[in-house]
Amino acid sequence: MITVNLDVVMAKNKISSLELADKIGITPANLSILKTGKAKAIRFSTLEAICNELKCQPGDILEFKED
């Protein structure tokens, strides 16, 4: 399964959810869905905006774990 480590990367960058949501142009509610792993998919544009803002690679945010 794919797990989202966005909260870890956010903590490393010392950025709040509200601030990140505002900077990447999505609602805090949607960012919360992404952080809690409820999201079923992520757009490349959103991933690009997150990586650009947090100065990281997609692999830092998304991780594959065997069931």
Partner: peptide, 8 residues
């Protein structure tokens, strides 16, 4: 619709 709603 659920899948669309949960595509961020």
């Amino acid at each position: 619709k659920d899948e669309n709603d949960y595509t961020i």
